[in-house]
Simulated assay, not measured.
Amino acid sequence: MQGPVQDRFGRDTSHLLDSTGVKSPEFATECIAAVEGLFGRSWLDGNEGQLGHRLQTLWRRKDWLATNELFGLGKTILELEKTHQQWLNSTAKKIKSGIKNAHGFITEILTCGSIKANTGKVSPAPGNQKGYDFAVDFSKRFQIFHIN
């Protein structure tokens, strides 16, 4: 019997296959590649910047839980880069700097990229915005703010 098949990152993503067939079998690897694209392989591998960052530690782990977490982060990155690439780049720079609230910025990416509204537009808060992380703007000037 053959063992698990590993992707180009040395991860078994078979548990992340879309059983509906809507997403390609490579989608999980594409999501992990989005993490690599945003943060850079060299930084993730610990070859530059502050060492020992929790995202670098997660990147080195190859277990199913770490793979799930990177998949989720990458999926939200793919969603956000369609319309918020500049915000993503700025947020990734803050995360990579190793500041104390880097975990909060990762959470902002996860939350903002996970929220959907059929008739509204989700937007991250502008840089240094106090009080909320993202807003959902609906037609007719109706807004919902996610308070931090």
Rank of each mutant, 00 (worst) to 15 (best):
M1R: 02
G3W: 04
P4D: 14
D7I: 02
D7L: 01
R8Q: 14
D12E: 07
T13Y: 05
T13K: 02
T13I: 13
H15F: 15
L16N: 04
D18Y: 09
T20G: 00
G21S: 05
V22A: 08
K23W: 12
K23L: 15
K23I: 06
P25L: 04
P25Q: 10
F27A: 08
F27C: 05
A28D: 07
C31T: 03
C31D: 10
E36T: 09
G37K: 14
G40E: 13
G40Y: 07
S42E: 15
W43I: 00
L44F: 08
L44R: 01
G46S: 09
G49Q: 09
R54E: 14
L55N: 01
L55I: 15
T57V: 11
L58N: 11
R60N: 11
R61H: 08
K62A: 07
K62L: 10
L65D: 08
A66E: 02
N68D: 14
L70R: 00
L70M: 15
G72W: 07
L73P: 03
G74F: 03
G74I: 01
T76F: 02
L80H: 01
L80S: 00
E81P: 00
E81N: 14
Q85F: 04
L88I: 09
L88A: 08
N89S: 13
T91E: 00
A92M: 04
A92E: 05
A92L: 04
A92Y: 03
K93I: 03
K93D: 11
K93Y: 04
I95G: 07
S97Q: 03
S97N: 07
G98S: 08
I99C: 07
N101W: 11
N101F: 10
A102G: 07
H103G: 14
I106M: 14
T107I: 02
L110F: 01
T111N: 11
I115V: 15
I115R: 10
N118K: 14
K121E: 12
K121G: 04
V122A: 08
V122H: 04
V122D: 08
S123K: 13
P124H: 09
P124F: 03
A125Q: 07
A125M: 04
P126G: 13
P126V: 11
N128D: 13
Q129K: 11
Q129N: 05
K130A: 14
K130T: 13
D133F: 06
F134R: 00
K140Y: 06
R141S: 08
F142P: 02
F142W: 02
Q143A: 08
I144Q: 03
I147F: 00
I147H: 10
N148D: 07
